[in-house]
Amino acid sequence: MTQPPYASHPYPAYGTQPPPPAPPTNGLAIAALVLGVLTLLFSVVPFVNLVGLLTGLTAIGLGLGGFAHARRHGRGAVMAGFGIGTAVVGMVVSVLVTFVVGKAFLGFFEEVTQTADVPEPAGSIGEWVPLDEDDVEVRLDDVTCDQEPADDGDHTCTVTFSVRNESPSTVSLGGDEVAAVVDDDYDSLRIVDDQGFPDSYAVASGETVSGSGTVDVPNVGSIDAVAFNLLRMRSSTTTVISVG
């Protein structure tokens, strides 16, 4: 009975070494890159970018760990660097977006709650002053108060003003858009028609219109300024013209 031939196993050539094992995967660098990209994506979404700040901090920490791993094993340094870079950029964008959105929200809150302080005067009586829209200007022409008080003890003051409209659309000014500033607060003017009903002045594009309204104040010199706002009074965009 013949024996089957033995399989031959070649031996490595004399003086050669087996290839070194592949360096281990840098999981920290991979995680840093993933979180860094997520931070960058979250950064442009308001409120969600607050979560992005946390993922950004985590990505930076993992990226630093990935650098340490790369120094020992020589793999993943570039990936860790990209992870830290995208995280830092994403966090900066998140802060900027949060600032812009927060400022807009505070402005809206002021508009809704009517809590904005009276702004500093932008001009004085007799001067043309631009409103928040640069194509519309107003001028406070005169403020005259009755020397004798009415039966309720208040003095009636008449405020005369002019509006110049260079915008492409018609603007309107009524009691909601014009107010006297008395003791750092707003007191809307009474602008009425011939029948005594509330009215407003419509100023077409390219026109200049003069108007007037009245307000009751406790003393003749109580009016410190007159305020104008085409959108809503008591906001940070209100234009104030000093009487003095």
Rank of each mutant, 00 (worst) to 15 (best):
Met1Ile: 08
Tyr6Asp: 14
His9Ile: 06
Pro10Gln: 09
Tyr11Met: 11
Ala13Arg: 08
Ala13His: 13
Tyr14Ser: 11
Gln17Phe: 09
Gln17Leu: 10
Pro19Ile: 06
Pro20Glu: 15
Pro21Met: 01
Thr25Trp: 00
Ala29Gln: 09
Ala29Arg: 04
Leu38Gln: 08
Leu38Pro: 02
Leu38Phe: 15
Ser43Met: 05
Asn49Val: 09
Leu50Pro: 05
Val51Leu: 15
Leu57Gln: 02
Gly63Asp: 01
Gly65Gln: 08
Gly66Cys: 05
His69Tyr: 10
Arg72His: 07
His73Leu: 03
His73Cys: 12
Gly76Val: 03
Gly76Leu: 02
Gly76Thr: 07
Val78Arg: 15
Met79Ser: 08
Gly81Glu: 07
Thr86Gln: 09
Thr86Pro: 06
Val89His: 07
Val89Leu: 15
Val93Cys: 01
Ser94Thr: 14
Thr98Asp: 12
Thr98Ala: 10
Phe99Val: 11
Gly102Glu: 02
Gly107Pro: 04
Phe108Leu: 13
Phe108Lys: 11
Glu111Ser: 11
Val112Met: 14
Gln114Gly: 14
Val118Pro: 04
Ala122Arg: 15
Glu127Val: 01
Glu127Tyr: 07
Trp128Thr: 13
Trp128Gly: 10
Val129Gly: 05
Asp132Ala: 15
Asp134Ser: 14
Val136Gly: 08
Cys145Thr: 07
Asp146Gly: 05
Glu148Phe: 03
Ala150Asn: 10
Asp154Tyr: 15
Cys157Tyr: 08
Thr158Gly: 04
Phe161Lys: 00
Ser162Gly: 11
Asn165Phe: 07
Ser169Gln: 11
Ser169Arg: 11
Thr170Glu: 06
Val171Met: 03
Ser172Leu: 05
Leu173Cys: 09
Gly174Val: 12
Glu177Lys: 09
Ala180Gly: 09
Val181Lys: 01
Val181Leu: 03
Val182Gly: 15
Asp185Ser: 15
Ser188Val: 07
Val192Thr: 13
Gln195Ser: 09
Phe197Leu: 12
Pro198Ala: 03
Val203Thr: 09
Ala204Arg: 05
Gly206Gln: 03
Glu207Pro: 02
Thr208Tyr: 01
Asp216Ala: 14
Asp216Tyr: 12
Asp216Arg: 14
Asp216His: 12
Gly221Tyr: 00
Ile223Leu: 12
Ile223Lys: 14
Asn229Ile: 02
Leu231Asp: 15
Arg234Val: 05
Arg234Gly: 02
Thr237His: 07
Thr238Arg: 06
Thr239His: 10
Val240Ala: 08
Ile241Asn: 06
Ser242Pro: 03
Val243Leu: 03
Gly244Asn: 11
